[in-house]
Design a protein around this nucleic acid. Structure first.
Lengths: 228, 228
DNA sequence: GTCTATAAATTGATAGAC
DNA sequence: GTCTATCAATTTATAGAC
C-alpha cells in the first residue's frame, strides 16, 4: 500500500518525506518555517514507518536517510544508531500495552468482564500506536535491544494469560479449551490486525474491536432462532 | 528455543548442524556415511530454520554457512543465492496452502462446511509445513522473489474471502459482521499460530485445529445451561 | 541540525583447485 | 560437494566544517 519505490529523480538535493510539521505538535511557534529539521520524535516516526515497510534488518541507515530527506550522518545527531531507534519504538509500544493492564474495567467487573475490556482496549491501543506495535511484534531477538523487547513482551503475555485463567476459573469462559491456549488464540487474533488494519481505511476502531470481541466470545456461527 | 549462539570454539573445522542424515530420507543406502554433504532439500531445511530464527534479511550467507557447517561458497553449488532459497521455501508453503482450497470437503458440503473444513486443514498444513509457512508469512516484498510471493498470497486470501462471503450469503455465519472482516479475523487467527505453535510441543494438531474452530465458530463464552 | 568525506567491517557472490 | 582466496559493493559509524 505504500508509494512505489521512486524511479525519477526527486526535486532539490533530496526529496523530503515531510514538509512543514516536523516537530512534535505545539512545540514550535508556527513562525519561521524554513529548514525545519527533525527532533527525536519526528525522526522516529519516519524511521519506524520505513522499518515497517522494508523490515528492520532490511532497512539500512542509507534507506532511512533517503526517507528522511537528510544524510546518514545527520541521523547520528539524534540517536546513537539504528538500534536506539528500535529501542525507542518498541518501548513506546510496550508502555502503551502495559498501561491497558492497569486500567480500570469498571467498579464491579469480574475477570471475564476485565478480559473483554482488555481485548477491546488492546485493539484500540494497537490501532492508536500501530507503527510502534507493528515493529514490536516483528522483533526477532537478534540484538540486545530486541532481546529486552522480547523479554518485556513475554511478561505481558504472561499477565494476559493469568487473566484468561481467572476468567476460566470464574466460569465465564468455556471449560473445554485450555486457558493458555485460549489466551494465545485471542491475542493471536488481536496481534494479527497489524497485518492489514489501517486506521484511516474506513473501518472504525470501535467497529473492529466490537467485531473481534463478538467473534471471539460469541462465535461466527449464526445461532438458530430460539423457537426453531 | 534454538541453541544459544555459540561462544566456545566448536570441534573440528566447523560445527555441523546435522550429523548423519542430510539427504532426503530413503535416498541413501545407509552405507558409507563419511562426509555426507547436502542436497538441495536438506540444505533448504537448515537454511529456512536459520531464516526463521534471525529473520531473512537478518541472516547473512555467512550465518547460513555457519549453521550448515560448510563455507559460503559451497552454498552456491546448490542454489544461485539467498533469494533462490527464499523462493524455494515460500513456493513450497504456497503450493501446500493452495492445495487445500482444491480438496474435497465432502459430497454434500455447503459453503459453511467447506469454510470449517478449510479452517481445520489450514491449521494442519501450517503445522506440517511450519518453517516454510512461517517464512512466507513474514515476507515483506523487498525483492522480486518476495513480491511474487506476496502476489500469490493475495490471490490465496482472495479465494478464502470468497468462500467466507458464500457462507455468509448462505446464512451459515452471522450477518452482523462483514464477511471480508470475518475472513481477515479467521485467517489472522490461523496465521498467528506460527508465532508460538510447535508440533513437537505436546499439543496435537487436531486438538489445536478443533480449538481454533470452536472458538471462532462457537465463541469462547460459556453458554448458559438451557434450563437456567 | 545538517553537511562532506572517509574509515572499517560485513555482505553477496565468483574463480578455480581438490 | 566442498574448499581457499578474493572482489566489488554496501553497511554502520565517526570526524570535523558550516
Amino acid at each position: 500500500m505504500g508509494p512505489p519505490s521512486g524511479v525519477c529523480a526527486p526535486p532539490g538535493p533530496a526529496a523530503r518525506h515531510n514538509d512543514g510539521v516536523n516537530r512534535t505538535p505545539g512545540t514550535v511557534p508556527a513562525e519561521r518555517r524554513r529548514r525545519p529539521g527533525y527532533d527525536r520524535d519526528s525522526l522516529l516516526e519516519i524511521a519506524v514507518g520505513t522499518f515497517n515497510e522494508r523490515g528492520y534488518d532490511g532497512t539500512s541507515m542509507e534507506d532511512l536517510a533517503r526517507a528522511l530527506g537528510i544524510t546518514k550522518s545527520s541521523i547520528y545527531h539524534h540517536v546513537s544508531g539504528k538500534e536506539e531507534l528500535l529501542d525507542l519504538a518498541v518501548s513506546r509500544a510496550l508502555d502503551a500495552l502495559f498501561a491497558v493492564l492497569d486500567e480500570d474495567a469498571g467498579p464491579d467487573a469480574g475477570s471475564t468482564e476485565r478480559l473483554e475490556y482488555l481485548l477491546r482496549r488492546s485493539v484500540e491501543v494497537l490501532a492508536a500506536e500501530l507503527p510502534y506495535v507493528t515493529l514490536l511484534l516483528r522483533v526477532r531477538g537478534n540484538s540486545p535491544a530486541e532481546q529486552r523487547a522480547l523479554s518485556r513482551r513475554r511478561e505481558l503475555d504472561h499477565r494476559v494469560a493469568e487473566l484468561v485463567h481467572q476468567a476460566a476459573a470464574e466460569g465465564g469462559v468455556r471449560g473445554d479449551i485450555d486457558p493458555a491456549l485460549a489466551s494465545r488464540l485471542i491475542f493471536g487474533t488481536v496481534n494479527s490486525l497489524i497485518e492489514w488494519y489501517r486506521p484511516d481505511g474506513g473501518l472504525a476502531v470501535d467497529t473492529l474491536a466490537a467485531a473481534a470481541a463478538t467473534i471471539l466470545f460469541e462465535g461466527l456461527r449464526r445461532k438458530p432462532v430460539q423457537g426453531a
